[in-house]
């Protein structure tokens, strides 16, 4: 497990446990939780609340057809089912399986597009309420200065970045709300790879990023 200092909020974990988050955010949560047993345990606690809700939601009139269900079972599983637990020897990999499923492979399989100033991105396909993309920020470079509307989650997968408040390394997640203006800078030594989701288009403050914005498609 990585040594993680920045975790998910209760608000996000409860929504993820309830299954109401947009897919783009869910992907960031699933990726963080794959790397963080602390948040996995917190998610388990929220899911136990869901279990209690299920347990309590019954009225005597409700019935389900057992015979049809047994027929369904006889037809075999709908999706392929994991028979053996996933091998845990994946230290050499940058992405947890949850993310690999969306990329179609590990870091080497990402199809990057330049967005200017050395920064590259790759948008991952999810449902439309929010967007998620991988960001590649060269060591020592700044991510263009931007403010937020809505919610933005940034999960570090490789390297580290700093902003005005803190340092974020592999596994750390930054939860940025509205009104937050910040300038993340990738640390020297290693390029920084992040998974970032937002439910609003970014608005950039600098002149160059403003020109680049139409190409960002976010």
């Amino acid at each position: 497990m990585d040594n993680i200092n920045h975790h998910l909020t209760d608000q996000l974990l409860l929504s993820y446990a309830a299954g109401t988050l947009p897919e783009a955010f869910s992907l960031v949560l699933a990726t963080h939780i794959s790397m963080c047993d602390e948040c996995r345990a917190r998610l388990g606690a929220f899911e136990t609340v869901g279990g209690a809700m299920l347990e309590a939601s019954v009225d005597n009139a409700t019935e389900v057809d057992l015979a049809s269900t047994l027929k369904l079972i006889a037809g075999g599983p709908k999706d392929p089912i994991l028979v053996k637990p996933l091998a845990q020897k994946r230290e050499s990999r940058v992405f947890p399986q949850a993310l690999t499923n969306y990329v179609g492979g590990d870091l080497a399989s990402v199809k990057w597009r330049s967005v200017g100033m050395g920064v590259r991105q790759s948008i991952l396909k999810t449902s439309g309420e929010a967007t998620v993309r991988l960001l590649h920020i060269p060591a020592g470079c700044a991510v263009p200065d931007h403010g937020h509307r809505g919610l933005e989650l940034t999960l570090v997968l490789q390297g580290a970045f700093r902003d005005e408040t803190d340092r974020f390394a592999r596994g750390d997640i930054e939860v940025a709300n509205e009104d937050m203006e910040h300038t993340p800078v990738a640390e020297e030594g290693m390029d920084c790879i992040c998974l970032a989701a937002t439910d609003a288009p970014l608005r950039f403050n600098g002149i160059v990023p403003r020109i680049a914005q139409p190409f960002l498609r976010i």
Binding site: G19, E23, L29, R40, K84, P96, A98, S127
Partner: peptide
């Protein structure tokens, strides 16, 4: 999520007892 919202559900990597 699958049937009502027609979305995929990204799940954390599975951990199971061998």
């Amino acid at each position: 999520i699958d049937m009502l919202r027609k979305q995929r559900r990204p799940e954390p990597d599975e951990l199971t007892w061998g």
